[in-house]
């Protein structure tokens, strides 16, 4: 009975699929690829090689490149659809089902309680792992797809600009290299590379903006409380006169630039005590 329940639960979870969020395409993928087969095939390049007139070569080049762009788009859209919720739900359901069946197998072979518990435990732990993976995937996938879309648009702009140029300025060979870049831009490794590069650039910019970083252990004792009270006698508003006096004292006697930093730990206890003494802080 337990085995049946275990398997039934696993099968139920495996079959639990959400809608993918995509309407059906106008043409199936094979139909779409078939529609541009002539121009996208390797054989189409023979006509380009044979043509002597620059304008004819440009027209053939554009026809070939547009056909291959279309093939890349069809394949990419198919790929993106398969990354959708439906696919992910199936993946997690499958993970759980496999774990459930494996656990059920162990239960069937042995009557020992310990083995049953171990099987149940591995099933639960495994399911947890599958769900964790799913949550992680769910959070990162939109960013990866957005990066793929952005990278593809960037490369597409290069290709579209090239197609407006003469064959001498933008040969089929150059276009083929750009088409390869267009393909890579629509892959998960390509997107991850682009994201990493962008993060590195932003980090470098941030590092340039922060010229100095110092760190102190937090230290807020009785002297700090007295200084803070002197700074804000009513606990609400900074007393400008007291603040200016402390600010001047810090600049004359320490390397600590502000009162706030001083009272949190940038000043030593001895420095705080000296300031309190010199300024007659109660």
């Amino acid at each position: 009975m337990r085995i049946v329940s275990f398997v039934a639960m696993a099968a139920l979870l495996a079959g639990c699929q959400a809608a993918g969020g995509y309407p059906p395409p106008g043409m199936t993928r094979p139909e779409a690829l078939k529609s541009v087969e002539t121009d996208s095939a390797v054989g189409a390049e023979a006509a380009y090689d044979a043509a002597a007139d620059p304008e004819v070569r440009r027209q053939i080049r554009n026809r070939i490149v547009r056909a291959r762009l279309y093939v890349a788009d069809v394949n990419y859209n198919d790929f993106a659809r398969n990354l959708s919720t439906e696919q992910k739900a199936f993946a997690v359901g499958s993970d759980i089902a496999v774990l459930g069946l494996a656990g059920a197998g162990t239960l069937a072979k042995s009557a020992r309680t310990a083995t049953r518990l171990a099987a149940a435990s591995s099933g639960v732990l495994g399911a947890r792992s599958a769900i964790d993976k799913e949550i992680y995937f769910d959070k990162t996938l939109p960013a990866i797809v957005a990066q793929m879309d952005a990278s593809r648009r960037t490369v597409y702009a290069t290709i579209a600009t090239g197609l407006a140029r003469s064959d001498a300025d933008y040969s089929l060979l150059q276009a083929k290299a750009d088409l390869e870049t267009y393909y890579i831009a629509g892959t998960i490794p390509g997107a991850l590379t682009a994201i990493t590069k962008e993060a590195g650039k932003q980090s470098a910019v941030a590092d340039q903006k922060i010229e100095r970083i110092v760190e102190y252990p937090y230290s807020f004792g009785n002297i700090s409380k007295r200084i803070l009270k002197y700074r804000k006698p009513d606990d609400k508003t900074v007393d400008v006169g007291h603040e200016s006096a402390m600010f001047a004292w810090l600049h004359a006697n320490t390397n600590v630039p502000t009162v706030g930093e001083c009272i949190l730990g940038a000043c030593t206890e001895a420095e705080k005590a000296q300031m309190a003494k010199d300024l007659a802080i109660p």
Binding site: I210, E211, R212, I213, V214, E215, Y216, P217, Y218, F220, L228, R231, V238, E243, S244, F247, T258, V259, G260, E261, I263, L264, G265, A266
Partner: peptide, 24 residues
Amino acid sequence: RQVRFRNVPAADVLERIENLKEGQ
């Protein structure tokens, strides 16, 4: 420039953030 203060107890955090922002 950036200054970091380690090990600030939760009870002090909000008031110390204000202390760092206010004043000259």
